[in-house]
Amino acid sequence: MVVESWFRSLWRTSRKHEFDSRKARIGVLAFEAAGLMSKLLHLWQSLTDKQVARLREEIMNSVGIKKLVSEDEDRIVRLICIEMMENLGQVAQAVARLSKQCSDPLLRSFEQAYNDLIKIGADAYGWQFTWNKMDKKAKKMERFTAANANLYQEMETLADLEQTLKRMKGNDDADSISLVEYEKKVAWKQQEVKHLKENSLWNRTYDYTIHLLARSVFTIYGRIGQVFGFNHMVNVGVTDSRVSDSSYSRRNQSILYTQSSVHPSENRHP
């Protein structure tokens, strides 16, 4: 496939120049970073006051949920919390891997910092945003994900155009005027892709990208804690959800907990 060929080529180029600078650009890994941002956005949006209130109402009033899952509202809440923490843990694993490429030693220690957050609730670097600031960062991540989706599409188009141009040049019967016009079309698309790269995550440093991801992970952890209650989080096995072990939820299905309420925040600050 054309997509596979250009993507592999970009990956090799990215790896070759990965350590050329302490401020290395994230390059082709922007697509993975954008995917992580999309997952964090989904989690954050599911934890807004409006969504939490809707969730609480559904748990209380839905006959279908009680029939299909459990009549025990506490158990339903616990399962939701486990799923959210597992999803957050999967993102944290990817962030921990990417953080190894950062020049900032604090960012390179993300894995240990997240483990400490999970085990003892310590935010040693003050990475958690206020809720209002996280809302602003969420809008920024939305723009990044949209820009990267557009970039990916245009890079696919460019790859197709370049393949067609290559075939035209190899055809002795190709019309010279048509060939020149097509070369102009390819050159224009190359400039468009270059501009999109310069204004997307592609052109951001590892430090910038991981800093945004890391602080978002910490903030969403704090928001989950506020919605479900930190005692509740401990009791569902969050203390076992370290970056190096994402299977905590499957090992803690039988653990009971004492707090079952799901509640929106009374204010928008941690």
Rank of each mutant, 00 (worst) to 15 (best):
E142K: 10
D49T: 12
G229V: 07
D116C: 12
M84V: 11
L10C: 11
G64I: 01
V91S: 12
I177H: 06
N199W: 10
L256K: 12
K67R: 01
I76K: 03
E111M: 13
G170L: 06
W188C: 00
N203M: 05
M60I: 06
K50S: 05
M84L: 15
Q112M: 05
L165Q: 01
N150T: 06
S241H: 09
K119Y: 12
I255W: 07
A53D: 11
T157M: 08
Q93H: 15
H269P: 01
R167S: 11
A113H: 05
L79G: 02
V193N: 09
R54W: 07
K39C: 06
S247W: 00
A96R: 15
G64A: 00
G27T: 01
V262M: 03
E198Q: 14
H17N: 11
W44K: 02
R215Y: 04
I255M: 05
G229H: 07
W127C: 04
P105H: 02
R250T: 15
E142A: 11
G126Y: 11
K133M: 14
L88Q: 04
S99F: 07
I82P: 12
H269S: 04
V217C: 10
K189T: 02
R22N: 07
W44M: 00
L151K: 14
Q101F: 15
P270L: 00
M155T: 09
R143G: 10
A34T: 02
G121T: 04
L165D: 04
A34V: 05
